[in-house]
Design a protein around this nucleic acid. Structure first.
Lengths: 137, 137
DNA sequence: AATAATATTGCAAATTATTTGCATTTATGA
DNA sequence: TCATAAATGCAAATAATTTGCAATATTATT
């Protein structure tokens, strides 16, 4: 807890410190799961406009405060992107549709990928497992 | 070419062989890229209803004739799922947004993942690279 | 501390992707 | 060939996200 200070993060990124951004970032920091625009609206019990949430999420993405979590869902998901939450694989359960964060892989696996990525410049590797989670099996 | 015969595939899966399913499956087989409902409608110049395409895609997914290609895009993408197109990693360019199919990894990498997936039953591993593709750099 | 300039927010409405209901049509097996 | 059940097309609904614009809040400056 006290992983990060919302106001500090906003200032570090040269962003205006608004009530809505503080509320939203607090909610994000205090979530240990992935989130969507709608799930955040539920969490901040202030009745914040969904449009505002979408716009703030766009700003947070641009500043790499959050990052995308890809899924086949039609809803867009994100997670906090900070030193306390390094890039890591996810497990998607096809029964309950939950997306579970897994521990990061130990270094060294990237070399295995070099041979297939060719001339493309790789900035990030997303690994996602699908199947049945331990609760659903 | 002649990778697969649409009518045969439909019959093998116990599906009714309809004109629309044949047209759509032909279009899918003759695409070496990923596709969306809309991109398929463009490809089959028959003016097939989008609703029909969505419904056929659902059936194809259920029968594992196609599979999802996950992305952060709000559009859902798919690819042909057959012996000629084994599961493989994708590269997503953040400039042109194209999704490029990469060669499959050689066997043996799965063991690296065992340690992080825990009690969850893994049925599939999705690997996706993001960055700048060779054309955009 | 008050103010001006500018970015942010909220509301309404538009857009995009996908799904549902229902009447019509088509494929398949008796 | 015909009956049956499933598939299709159209219209409309739903869900997620985006846009326009006026009202409001933040921040640097006075």
């Amino acid at each position: 807890m006290d992983k990060c200070d919302s106001a500090v993060i906003l200032k570090q990124n040269g962003l205006k410190v608004t009530q809505q951004r503080l509320l939203l970032l607090d909610a994000i920091i205090n979530t240990d799961k992935i989130f969507s625009a709608l799930s955040l609206q539920d969490k901040v019990n202030d009745n914040m406009d969904l449009v505002t949430i979408y716009r703030i999420l766009t700003v947070f993405l641009e500043n790499k405060i959050i990052r995308d979590v890809i899924s086949k869902d039609t809803t867009r998901f994100y997670e906090l992107s900070c030193i306390h939450n390094p890039v890591h694989p996810h497990f998607v359960c096809r029964k309950c549709n939950n997306i579970i964060c897994l521990n990061s892989l130990k270094n060294g696996y990237m070399s295995k990928f070099k041979e297939i990525t060719g001339d493309n410049i790789v900035e990030n590797v997303i690994i996602q497992f699908t199947g049945i989670c331990s609760k659903c099996k």
